[in-house]
């Protein structure tokens, strides 16, 4: 049985079609990257996979069960889904809505009905594991970009979800924080967990994914192993993931080569 399966999924807003009869299936235990330029619909897709938005037509199934608004209206389905699936938002100001780091990490477990002592232990443990115990009483507003991202990951991973959805996990981070975040993810995803990452950062692709889906204009335009995708210059250029820079050399020749923007 597939972990996620969409059939003819369409989602639009403001007369803009974000997803256009999208079909995809993601297997249990796989590490998948959704690659696409800004506006390719990958954030929207992640929110739909997390049961936060719902398509206007088509179906989405999670382990064979349809994900509709009616299903999420039942507490039983919603809680069981939220226990298994975690989503880390791109914008840390959206992800970190609690007044302190401690409350942030405790939010998920408390909502899922863990006992208070269990929450206390687990939060302490997670803060230590992510190396953010010293930030416990800090307000998220005054954390550095890298610290914010670590808190965001901790706040979702504290409940140990089997499925992790990540929206641009390394966006707006300095190179060192980027590699720290990737290390954390690689370490965490060592088991049989499923990780779906939306990104336009091609540099990390091989570290975070075994399989790559290229999204363009609300459709999956290619699907292959990361190495293969990275070799396909023509595809990457067409999907706006890389673009050619032209410049003059001293000798006078006009030279052009593809150019990747690691993070924006």
């Amino acid at each position: 049985m597939m972990l996620f399966e969409t059939t003819d999924l369409t989602y639009s807003y403001d007369r803009v079609t974000a997803l256009d009869r999208l079909n995809l299936s993601i297997a249990e235990g796989s590490r998948v990257a959704l690659v696409g330029a800004n506006g390719s619909g990958k954030s929207t897709l992640l929110r739909i996979l997390d049961g936060l938005n719902f398509g206007q037509s088509g179906t989405v199934r999670f382990r064979g069960e349809p994900m509709t608004e009616a299903h999420f209206a039942s507490d039983e389905f919603a809680f069981s889904f939220r226990r298994q699936v975690g989503l880390v938002f791109q914008n840390p100001d959206v992800q970190l809505f609690n007044p302190t780091v401690f409350d942030e990490v405790a939010f998920g477990p408390l909502q899922l009905g863990w006992s208070k002592s269990e929450v206390r232990d687990r939060v302490g443990e997670t803060l230590d594991r992510f190396g953010i115990a010293h930030l416990k009483d800090r307000v998220p507003h005054r954390l550095s970009g890298g610290e914010k991202k670590r808190v965001a990951l901790a706040s979702v991973l504290v409940t140990d979800p089997a499925v992790l959805l990540l929206d641009e996990p390394t966006a707006a981070l300095d190179p060192r924080s980027q590699s720290q975040v990737i290390d954390l993810l690689v370490e965490w995803g060592g088991g049989a967990k499923s990780v779906i990452t939306a990104t336009h950062n091609l540099a990390d692709l091989e570290d975070i994914a075994d399989r790559c889906l290229v999204l363009d204009g609300g459709l999956v335009v290619a699907e292959a192993a990361p190495a293969e995708i990275l070799r396909n210059r023509e595809l990457l250029e067409r999907s706006n993931l890389i673009h050619a820079h032209r410049h003059h050399h001293r000798s006078g020749e006009l030279h052009s080569h593809p150019h990747v923007h690691p993070s924006e």
Partner: peptide, 16 residues
């Protein structure tokens, strides 16, 4: 609101 829902928020508030 979406980020809260994503972590299991159903309208009840708990504090630790």
């Amino acid at each position: 609101y979406l980020a809260m829902q994503a972590r299991g928020f159903r309208g009840d508030v708990y504090l630790l």
